[in-house]
Design a protein around this nucleic acid. Structure first.
Length: 558
RNA sequence: GCGCCAGUAGCUCAGUUGGAUAGAGCAACGGACUUCUAAUCCGUAGGUCGUGGGUUCGAGUCCCGCCUGGCGCGCCA
């Protein structure tokens, strides 16, 4: 039983009945159920009476009183009361608490999953950095947030594909090839200069070295640069893939811009836009009528020299997304690319596709705070710490958790010293430590010869302290939190929830260190011990499932 | 100049889509380990939610003006 849904439908039905009794047809406002910040107000609250007051021309208090009488008989409701200016507050029964725990215990690793997706297909495109060099911290936030959005959607019942799109055509790629060729020649002892604005980084030297042992000097006099471009691209992609794997991320599809050209998709897209009269020629270039769709101005699709801009193949790529019949398309963008979104949406509409299927997630810049200095990191600048070294130094769990603590669309200051602090103060360990404590309790129980019998057989009504009730009500929130994270594509809600839940547990646990009758394991009270072990089991399941969605490990000891 | 995003405790940030007395972590100060892990817990202190109006039963949240900061405004990608 999901207690949230139960309360919601209870209030909904009661409101319907009340409205109908007044001779009205429908409830004009959606039913909202809240969890009051102040515990004195109970487990749940609804402001529905105040929302109805105007339409019904009755006082909120009167409506609240009437509705509360209609729900009072429900077996899950211990008490209902009405508070001014018209809140209805509920407290649930201990029977409801027991139901919550039995449900979690039955669901196990599946607890928290839901099916708002109904198996609909979701495409999550993220990172999509061009293969011109190693990934750095600026990419890491995008990678982690994108992957966790994908995980949330999966847990919410979507069939998810993770996709990486990269630009392997155009001048930048040519420059990359020329740069590698220069490094290759240098390795052979030939004097060769990097092209102007070439790629200076050491990593091309590291690619050139094995290249020499692989092919010797057989390409020494090659004038066509494409071999070097391809070689550098493939090597870099492999290294990007390794970086992603070290973060626990596996892409299902890798789509190349060059394929959009080779397969004729760019031409096809341009023809389509022309046929729809959404592209026009002006000053020798082809323009998209993006201003018809809310963009600031029209945009160039094909330059005067006949070369397409970035936009044309990207629209072909997005057309390709729609052709594959995905129901929702999630895109992550670096904060410095937010201005591109209206243009993309305009192009999609111009092609006749609904841009409402597109969910653009802006992932704001990261400022690195290290050695007392602040460095701004965009995906285009300031990269001197590679993603690889970041993971080596901090570990996957820390990197993932840190980027998931904050909402993606606000700027983030990454405190390197705090992230590196492996002993205390690091919020990752706070949650993981809770999990380790659960496991430790079960281990200790086994040592004392206590055999956990399962939630089904426990007398859960014995869980009656305020702390226990609070934890149970928190546990019941996981499905809502996941649902919200998936619907809003905002995974940080889950991170915050896990910290809150871990906090409630640590507090509860500490009471037991002071007073032995409040410990989980009470050897002279087997029945109570069994009930509390059920609570710990449910805590373990909930924290483990949450961490799993974040891609963070749940250690059994620390 | 125009557009987008932001401004909440000394610092970093939440704030359940408009709800009741605005929260957490860090930093500061004071406490708690013969007992299930002190990587923990408790307490104290810290606020004109940038600012001025507006909308209503009710605003940190929505609307308008202003101030401050970030980003973007190319026939670059």
């Amino acid at each position: 039983m999901d207690i949230n849904q139960h309360i919601e439908s209870l209030v909904h039905d009661a409101a319907q009945r009340y409205v109908r009794a007044l001779g009205r047809e429908e409830v004009p406002t959606p039913i909202t159920i809240e969890i009051p910040k102040n515990k004195d107000y109970g487990d749940f609250a609804t402001p529905v009476a105040m929302l109805l007051a105007r339409a019904l021309r009755k006082s909120p208090m009167e409506i609240a009183k009437a509705i509360s009488e209609l729900v009072a008989a429900d077996p899950m409701i211990a008490s209902v009361n009405v508070a001014p200016p018209g809140f209805i507050n509920f407290t649930v029964t201990s029977n409801a608490h027991g139901e919550i725990l039995r449900h979690i215990s039955n669901e196990q690793a599946h607890y928290g999953h839901c099916d708002i997706g109904h198996g609909k297909r979701a495409l999550v495109e993220f990172v999509s950095a061009n293969p011109t060099g190693p990934l750095h911290i600026g990419h890491a936030r995008n990678a982690v947030v994108g992957d966790t959005i994908a995980r949330c959607l999966q847990t919410a019942g979507y069939a998810v594909t993770r996709e990486y799109y990269f630009n392997d055509a155009g001048v930048q790629m040519k420059k990359l090839g020329e740069s590698l060729r220069a490094r290759y020649l240098q390795q052979l002892g030939v004097e060769a200069a990097l092209p102007p604005d070439g790629y200076q980084g050491e990593y091309l030297v590291e690619i050139a070295r094995p290249l020499v042992s692989e092919i010797g000097d057989s390409r020494k006099n090659e004038t066509d640069v494409s071999f070097f471009t391809n070689y550098a691209t493939e090597k870099t992609l492999r290294s990007i893939d390794e970086d992603m794997k070290s973060l626990g991320i596996a892409f299902d599809e890798w789509v190349r811009e060059s394929a959009m050209h080779h397969e004729g998709k760019v031409r096809e897209t341009l023809d389509e836009l022309k046929a729809r009269n959404k592209a026009y020629q002006h000053d020798g270039a082809w323009w998209l009528r993006s201003s018809e769709y809310g963009d600031e101005k029209d945009r160039v699709l094909v330059k005067r020299d006949g070369e397409p801009t970035y936009l044309a193949p990207d629209l072909a790529y997005h057309k390709f997304k729609y052709e594959r019949r995905y129901d929702i398309l999630v895109n992550t963008f670096g904060g410095d690319h937010h201005g591109y979104v209206p243009r993309l949406a305009a192009g999609i509409e111009a092609l006749g596709y609904p841009s409402s299927a597109l969910r653009c997630v802006i992932i704001q810049m990261v400022t690195l705070l290290k050695d007392g200095e602040r460095t701004k990191l965009s995906t285009r600048s300031g990269e001197f710490i590679t993603l690889k070294s970041m993971i080596n130094e901090l570990g996957r769990d820390v990197v993932r958790f840190f980027f998931l603590m904050r909402s993606a669309d606000s700027h983030l200051v990454f405190d390197w010293e705090l992230a590196k602090d492996t002993s205390m103060n690091n919020p990752v360990y706070y949650v993981q430590y809770a999990h380790a404590r659960f496991c430790s309790i079960f281990k200790k129980g086994a040592e004392l010869g206590i055999q956990y019998q399962g939630a089904e057989r426990a007398n859960l009504a014995l869980l009656e302290t305020a702390e226990e009730k609070e934890i149970i009500m928190l546990l019941a929130q996981l499905p809502q939190v996941i649902r919200k994270s998936a619907e809003a594509v905002e995974p940080h809600h889950l991170t915050l929830y896990l910290r809150q839940l871990a906090g409630a547990f640590h507090q509860y646990f500490t009471i037991g260190t002071k007073k032995s009758e409040y410990r989980v394991l009470v050897p002279d009270n087997q029945e109570l011990t069994q009930a509390r072990l059920a609570l710990i089991e449910c805590l373990r399941i909930t924290i483990a499932n949450g961490l799993s969605i974040l891609g963070v490990s749940a250690p059994e000891r620390m």
